[in-house]
Design a binder for these strands. Structure first.
Lengths: 151, 151
DNA sequence: AACAAGTAGATGCATTTGCATGTATGTAGG
DNA sequence: CCTACATACATGCAAATGCATCTACTTGTT
């Protein structure tokens, strides 16, 4: 059943444009605030969190780079070098992946787990302060639902 | 009157976190698609559009850098160099601002106006395709409204 | 086996960003 | 007027990003 209020045409409707602009601006603003909190706490870049988190979630605390890539939407070449930085900081280590000579494991270290936990101490409250405090529970749920449609 | 469903506490509620993650991911995905369209059309970076648009909107087709900064959320040093690039491409020009020796005008050129229009030919349909087509009119309006709360 | 094509990941190079700081001008207080 | 501080914008340098390409390994075909 076609939804008559959708639009497959070429020119965007005003609501659509506003939603898009709003999306860009909102993420920009909130991100700036969260990053400010991170810097104030002397933490590494926010982007590190996502990788560490995916690794913590993963069974055995390890993932293949291409799996991290899919989960985080990072570009392959960016991830490759981000892993370099994480390795240099001792937060993850690379291990050989025997079943495929092209592959490797990225394994989170204890220091990595500790760092993720430490980052969450800032990140969590920051999310709450800059997002949660501005939305009711229902609104947050609704927002998440609408955003999910854009993937 | 306090809204009991809001949360000033430290730990983010799950809905809040989902909304934030969703915000990051959605903008990432949609942006990637739009930028792909831009590249396919041989257009300059998307970020240029915002500056050109603000200038078109502005009276006399000109603004002070700090005004552009406020409207676009660009960092001062980034804007300074973005203007350099636009000047080099002949899309804007700098003019002296007599009332304040520290200031300057950034004026859009005819080529700049033409480029903005040309970019919109891709940008508009791209927004519609990647945002509009996924939301009903009511949803888009709702989304815009919720995002507005995050500023 | 031999080879074409695909996939995982790394890397050289140019561009862009972030950060700190610099320069010039303006403004307010004594 | 002089000094102190604020504002507007630029810039040197290091780090991150995008892009194209490279290497190494794997898989499917003949």
């Amino acid at each position: 059943m076609a939804d008559e209020t959708k639009n497959d045409g070429e020119r965007p409707r005003p609501e659509t444009t506003e939603a898009w602009i709003g999306l860009m601006r909102a993420r920009e603003r909130v991100l700036a605030r969260i990053e400010a909190d991170f810097k104030a706490s002397g933490l590494p870049p926010l982007g590190w969190y996502d990788v560490l988190w995916e690794l913590v979630q993963a069974e055995g605390g390890r993932l293949r780079p291409f799996e991290i890539e899919a989960r985080t939407l990072l570009a392959q070449y960016n991830l490759s070098r981000l892993i370099d930085r994480l390795v240099k900081e001792g937060l993850v280590r690379r291990e050989t992946f025997d079943a495929d000579g092209r592959g490797q494991w990225v394994v989170i270290t204890e220091a990595g787990r500790a760092m993720r936990a430490r980052m969450w101490l800032t990140y969590g409250p920051s999310i709450e302060a800059h997002v949660g405090a501005r939305l009711t529970e229902a609104e947050a749920r609704q927002l998440a639902g609408l955003l999910a449609k854009l993937r």
